[in-house]
């Protein structure tokens, strides 16, 4: 099984870190992984994005163009990456910030109100973790427990105390997606 994902949003939404969490968690589980950021001037403008691959096979191209899952945190990202979802793949839309739905009919779309859910937990900065929980629930790319085990590898020991709220967000997203799937 090969998961090829694109995670996109605007700067400050933590899309790079989300990708890193998935990549670390995959490596932690003994899988083949790669993380490839978009880089250059466009990082400061519209969409910042990264491609994450978690696979049982050695990773070929680190550039994800035919994605098994795409996460979009803002509208420009939806506009840009909607077409990159493979038929039958998944698209996770942050419905708190994106009003329109996907025009694709050959993919599974999950609209997650990530910012609202994060707000309800008391910190909008964990919106990304809500979506990540949903991604894990739907795709099974990594085990949900793996994120906790590698959290400080991405964010450093200094942020270990933030794990609690992030864990809540992750579990909330996971639960929302499971409900949608049921």
């Amino acid at each position: 099984m090969t998961h090829e994902m694109i995670i996109a949003g605007f700067g400050g939404q933590g899309v790079m870190s989300l990708g890193e969490l998935l990549t670390y968690a995959g490596m932690h589980e003994g899988k083949e992984v790669s993380w490839m950021p978009s880089y250059g001037p466009e990082m400061r403008g519209g969409a910042a994005s990264c491609g994450v691959i978690v696979s049982d096979e050695p990773v070929g191209s680190p550039v994800v163009t035919e994605a098994t899952a795409v996460v979009v945190m803002n509208l420009p990202s939806l506009d840009k990456f909607e077409e990159n979802v493979l038929p039958g793949g998944c698209l996770f839309i942050n419905s708190s910030l994106i009003e329109r739905n996907s025009t694709r009919t050959d993919i599974k779309v999950y609209r997650i109100p990530a910012n609202e859910e994060a707000q309800a937990l008391g910190n909008t900065r964990v919106a990304g973790m809500v979506i990540l929980g949903a991604v894990i629930a739907v795709t099974g790319v990594v085990a949900i427990d793996s994120i906790g085990e590698i959290f400080t590898k991405v964010f450093g020991e200094k942020r270990a105390k933030l794990w609690d709220i992030n864990k809540q967000a992750l579990e909330r997203g996971y639960a929302i997606a499971k409900e949608m799937m049921a």
Binding site: E20, M27, E32, V33, S34, W35, M36, Y39
Partner: peptide
């Protein structure tokens, strides 16, 4: 190339 330099791998 820029890709190899920027990407992360184990």
């Amino acid at each position: 190339d820029g890709m190899l330099g920027q990407m992360m791998e184990p």
